[in-house]
Design a protein around this nucleic acid. Structure first.
Length: 543
DNA sequence: CAGTGAGCGAGCTTCCGCTTGACTT
C-alpha cells in the first residue's frame, strides 16, 4: 500500500519522526521517513568526473564553467550512492514526497538537489515540510501544513557554494605556486587565521606600563571582621590602574596620577601608624540574569573551558548524547526552547527549588550572531521530561555525563529567576602625619536571592578573573565615621598585560560574532588552521 | 645492442557546508 515518503537530513530524526507520524491519516499507509544523511551531492572536484568533452577545458579543476554563465557540474557522492538508491526505491512505492530537510539555506538546497536527483514522476505531489523542534505536535502540524520549495534560498546557497569554490581553489593555487603545495586559503579559514595573526601582532606591539598601589587589610573595632581594600586616590587625585593605560603604555586620561615604587613605599610606611575612618558607604542593588540556552558555539566555548577539551571533542560527545536520545540536535545557532522544553524545565525547578524559583514569563533571547538561521531548537536535554544528570551519570562515559550536566544546568537555569543581591562600596581614608590624604575603597556583594545561580556555577568560566564585582564577598556592617585599624598595608607593583591569545573556545566565539563559518564547521576549521601549520597550540592558546 | 637521459604528460593537492559511521593514524 502506498504512503507518502518523507526525507529528512538526520537518521536519528528519521526514527523519531516515524514514531510521531505513525497512524497519521494520509488516506494511505503511514509515512515512510528516510534520512539523506546530509548533502547527497556536490560540485565535481576532479576533471575526470566531468562529462566527456569537458575534461580538457581550462576550468575543469573548478567544476564550474565561467564561460557558460557559471554553470555548475554536480556529482552524487560515492558514499551516498547507496542512500540515493534506497530513496529511489522508496519513492517508487510512494504516492507523495515530503522534503523535510532543515529550514535553513543548506537544507533548502539539499531539498532541491534531492528533487534533481530523484526526479519524482510528474503526477506525484511534492511538498516542502519544515519544523523547528522534534516534538509530536510540531511534527504533525508541519506535516499537515507544508509549503513550496523556496527557489530564492536555493539560489542563495548555490551562489555561496560557487563563490567559495572559485575563490578558495584559485587562492589556494596561488599558495601552491608561491609558498608550498597542499596549502589552502578560503573565506573562513583565512579569516580565522587572520584573527589569530592580528591578535599576535597586538601582543607584540604592546608596550607594558608599570604602576603601583597599596592593598590594605582593615578591621573595625566594633566588628572585627577583616576585609581588604585598595588605595584609589592620593590627595584627591585618582590613582591610575590597569584600565587607564592604552596598548602603548600611555595614560588615556589626565585626571589620574601614576604612582611609582618610591612614593608608594614611603606612603605605606606612614600609613602603618595612621588612623583610618569610614568616609562613605554606598549600596547598590545587584541583579544578574541567567544565560541563554546553548547554541553550538556557546556550548563549545563553555564546555571547552570547563572540561578542558577541544571543540572537536565537545562535538563528538554531544553527537553521542544526541544519538542516544539524551539531548536535542547539537548543531544549531538558535537559543529558542520549545514550549515542551520550557514546561519540562519548570517542572524540574519546582521539584528541586520550589515553584517560587520559576521566572514568571518564559524567557527568550535575541539572536547574538548576525547571520543566525535558527532552523533548530537550542541544545537542551531531550524530551518532555528531562533525564536527571544523576541517572545519566550511570549510563554514559564520565565526559558525556559532565557535558549532559552542563547542558541540563544551563537549560534549567534559563527559566529561573534572576539572582539578586546588594553591592556595597565603602570608602575609607586617612590623613598622614605629613599631611597626605589617602583614600581606599572596598566593595562586597551579598547575594540574597540566588535564583538561577543555585543551578549553574558560572564563575568557573572566568579564567581572566577580572570580574571582581560579581564575586560574592561580604563586608562588615559599617557606617560613616567608624574608626578602623589597618592590620596590613602592602605596597603592590603591577604592570599592564597584553590582550590574551585566542583559545579554540574564544576563537569560535569571535567567529560566530562576526558571522564567519557555521555550527557544523567551527570544529573542523580549528583542525584545518592547525593542520596546515598556520596556527599552533601552546597550552590551550592559539599562536 | 644496452644503457642513459631529455622531454612530455598525467595526476595530485585546495574551498565550505550538511550528515554519520567505517576505518586505520
Amino acid at each position: 500500500m502506498a504512503g507518502p515518503l518523507v526525507i529528512v537530513e538526520s537518521p536519528t530524526k528519521a526514527k523519531k519522526i516515524t514514531e510521531f507520524l505513525r497512524g497519521e491519516d494520509t488516506g494511505g499507509a503511514s509515512p515512510t521517513v528516510i534520512a539523506s544523511v546530509g548533502h547527497i551531492r556536490d560540485l565535481v572536484s576532479k576533471a575526470k568526473e566531468l562529462p566527456e568533452g569537458k575534461q580538457k577545458e581550462w576550468w575543469s579543476y573548478l567544476g564550474i564553467d565561467p564561460d557558460d554563465d557559471f554553470k555548475p557540474y554536480y556529482k552524487v557522492y560515492d558514499k551516498k550512492k547507496d542512500t540515493v538508491a534506497e530513496l529511489r526505491r522508496a519513492l517508487k512505492n510512494a504516492d507523495a514526497l515530503y522534503l523535510a530537510t532543515d529550514e535553513d539555506r543548506e537544507g533548502e538546497a539539499i531539498a532541491w538537489h534531492l528533487l534533481q536527483v530523484l526526479k519524482p514522476p510528474k503526477d506525484m505531489p511534492v511538498y516542502r515540510m519544515v519544523f523547528h523542534e522534534i516534538t509530536a505536535p510540531a511534527i504533525r502540524e508541519a506535516f499537515a501544513n507544508p509549503r513550496e520549495l523556496d527557489q530564492l534560498l536555493v539560489d542563495a546557497q548555490e551562489t555561496r557554494r560557487l563563490l567559495d569554490r572559485l575563490a578558495g581553489y584559485d587562492l589556494s593555487q596561488v599558495l601552491w605556486k608561491k609558498v608550498n603545495r597542499g596549502l589552502s586559503a578560503g573565506r573562513v579559514q583565512s579569516v580565522a587565521t587572520r584573527l589569530v595573526v592580528e591578535r599576535e601582532r597586538e601582543i607584540m606591539a604592546f608596550v607594558s606600563a608599570d604602576w603601583w598601589d597599596i592593598k590594605g587589610v582593615f578591621a573595625a573595632s566594633s566588628e572585627p571582621i577583616p576585609f581588604g581594600a585598595k588605595l584609589i586616590a592620593l590627595d584627591g587625585v585618582r590613582v591610575a590602574t590597569g584600565n587607564d593605560f592604552n596598548d602603548d603604555g600611555a595614560l588615556t586620561r589626565d585626571d589620574r596620577v601614576i604612582l611609582n615604587e618610591e612614593t608608594v613605599r614611603s606612603l605605606a610606611a606612614e600609613l602603618q601608624t595612621s588612623p583610618f575612618s569610614v568616609r562613605s558607604v554606598e549600596s547598590k542593588p545587584y541583579r544578574k540574569r541567567p544565560f541563554a540556552p546553548f547554541t553550538t558555539s556557546t556550548l563549545q566555548q563553555v564546555a571547552g573551558r570547563r572540561l578542558k577539551v577541544s571543540a572537536k571533542q565537545v562535538m563528538s560527545m554531544a553527537q553521542s548524547l544526541y544519538q542516544q536520545g539524551y539531548i536535542t540536535y547539537m548543531r544549531t545557532d538558535s537559543t529558542n526552547l520549545s514550549a515542551a522544553a520550557v514546561t519540562a524545565a519548570k517542572s524540574e525547578i519546582t521539584e528541586r527549588y520550589g515553584a517560587s524559583a520559576i521566572e514568571g514569563k518564559s524567557r527568550t533571547w535575541g539572536k547574538k550572531a548576525a547571520n543566525a538561521q535558527e532552523a533548530h531548537e537550542a541544545i537542551r536535554p531531550a524530551g518532555d521530561r528531562f533525564r536527571r544528570p544523576e541517572e545519566v551519570r550511570n549510563e554514559v562515559p564520565p565526559g558525556e555525563a559532565r557535558l549532559y550536566e552542563i547542558i541540563w544546568q544551563r537549560t534549567v537555569a534559563s527559566q529561573m529567576i534572576d539572582a539578586i543581591g546588594e553591592t556595597v562600596t565603602v570608602r575609607l581614608g586617612s590623613l598622614t602625619a605629613s599631611g597626605r590624604d589617602a583614600e581606599f575603597s572596598a566593595a562586597g556583594t551579598v547575594i540574597t536571592e540566588r535564583g538561577w545561580m543555585q543551578v549553574e556555577d558560572w564563575r568557573t568560566d572566568d579564567t581572566d578573573a577580572e570580574n571582581d564585582d560579581d564575586t560574592e564577598r561580604r563586608l562588615p556592617q559599617l557606617k560613616v565615621g567608624d574608626g578602623l585599624d589597618a592590620t596590613e598595608i602592602t605596597p603592590e607593583g603591577h604592570s599592564t598585560k597584553p590582550p590574551a591569545r585566542f583559545t579554540e573556545a574564544s576563537l569560535v566565539g569571535k567567529m560566530e560574532e562576526l558571522g564567519v563559518g557555521r555550527p557544523s564547521t567551527y570544529a573542523s576549521i580549528m583542525e584545518t588552521i592547525q593542520g596546515r601549520g598556520y596556527v599552533w597550540k601552546k597550552g590551550s592558546a592559539l599562536v
